[in-house]
């Protein structure tokens, strides 16, 4: 939670240091602000889950103002469940306890992307692609034999995105898809990529 506050402060500081940029940009301001929601499915054996994100971007003057730098914060908490059997449960003639478990992996990611926008390349639609590094903060919480335990940590990863934006009002309605490479090596999870696909994200991007 402290990390989240720290990042929010960082983002605010970054946006606050460039007040003049809001008056420039293609078709509006150069600051982009976009809430988004979607469905995320990890490539690890975790269930799908609701994906919430908030994007803050800046349209640079580079490449004819088609290159934007975007910082996104997102959150999702998929979980897995199953039944564990092991010869070390019970033993000495004692019946083994019920090995049903759940494992929830909460992820808060800070993604820094370079996004190239093909302004109105498809009639009024603007396709865009991008990618960049991400800082992925994970908290895995397990529940087994009635006891709950958790482990937390973070690491760097990579992500790529593609989207299509339809101008609407002061901004644009967009559809977006992501792929995340987010390695994780916890006791409870094992060494896996808990990233995966944002199967579909919907959002609205304001130009300020």
């Amino acid at each position: 939670m402290n990390a989240l506050i720290l990042v929010a402060l960082t983002a605010l500081a970054a946006s606050g240091s460039k007040p003049a940029a809001s008056t420039e940009g293609v078709g509006g301001g150069r600051i982009l602000l976009a809430p988004k929601v979607g469905f995320f499915k990890s490539t690890a054996p975790l269930g799908g889950d609701l994906y919430l994100g908030l994007e803050l971007g800046y349209v640079t003057p580079l490449l004819k103002r088609r290159l934007a730098v975007v910082m996104e914060v997102n959150y999702h908490r998929p979980q897995a469940s199953g039944v564990l059997t092991d010869s070390q449960l019970g033993g000495f003639g004692a019946p083994p306890p019920d090995g049903s478990y759940t494992l929830a992996v909460r992820e808060v990611a800070f993604l820094l992307s370079a996004v190239f926008r093909f302004e109105r390349a498809l009639g009024s639609l603007t396709p865009y692609v991008g990618g960049g590094p991400g800082l992925y903060l994970h908290r895995a919480t397990s529940d087994l034999f009635g006891a709950t335990a958790s482990e937390s940590g973070g690491g760097l990863g990579l992500q790529a995105l593609a989207g299509l934006e339809l101008p609407l009002g002061p901004g644009g309605l967009f559809l977006e898809t992501h792929y995340h490479l987010a390695p994780l090596d916890f006791v409870t999870t094992g060494d896996v990529n808990v990233g995966g696909f944002l199967a579909g994200g919907l959002g609205y991007r304001l130009r300020l």
Binding site: P45, D86, T188, T189, G190
Partner: peptide, 26 residues
Amino acid sequence: WSLEVEGKRFTPVPGEALTDTPTVEL
């Protein structure tokens, strides 16, 4: 030789639950 350890809150957790070979971490 066998021994019994009595106490409270002995807590195994799932191990490598997101891999192909999940185990119990004792």
